[in-house]
Amino acid sequence: MTPVFECSHITKHYGAKAALSDINLTLEPGRIVGLLGPNGSGKTTLIKLAAGLLTSTSGTLTICGERIGPLTKSKVSYLPDKDYLSGWMSVSQVIDLFHDFYENFDRVKACEMLNRLQIDPEQKLKTLSKGNREKVILILTMSRSADLYLLDEPIGGVDPAARDYILQTILTNYNESGTILISTHLISDVERILDEAVFLKNGTVSIHSAVDDIRNQYQKSVDELFREVFAC
């Protein structure tokens, strides 16, 4: 099976600073993978490379066997770490925008989820709270039928009850051959839905392992291991 995401010897410099150095990482279809690391470890850089927003200094990165380009953008559904939608738009206008923009966007699914979370489609984005805006953007991202979902800090501003619903949403709605790469600091919340965890440390992959193998090997949860590996 062609890996959904494959990078070999990826290095990315910002000027003299190396954000990523010699990353080798392969992700198979149908997995939910946690991209974990302290601030400044290179998580967002790696995700932006895969989304085609940055180009690497050296190394190759492929999505479903394709080099990053316009074609891979149709296979990747990306949720940035920053709010990127215009505040003057209403939720339903953003849905129209996504519907126009992406062939693989499932409008019915998006509306169902918004309804479940009791978000009024006529509300303007700027009048929504941070958490509700995050929910809208996550719903839009997950309503595309993509091969790779890149979620950069998706649930930071969401309350714990809604977080459970959102994780549930991710579990029940992602297409089964798709892979989700999710970067987050809320490890204990997402740990149970992950297949694999990738630890980034100073721009290199320090651990890449199945969650249950980590729990087996270290006799601790991924959250506890993280706190130990990255103790200040």
């Binding site: 149908g30 579990l171 149970r192 839905i193």
Partner: peptide, 14 residues
């Protein structure tokens, strides 16, 4: 598997 995974709130592969 899906329903059980959803009930337990875990990854279906697990």
């Amino acid at each position: 598997v899906r329903d059980l995974a959803s009930e337990a709130a875990v990854n279906p592969n697990t």
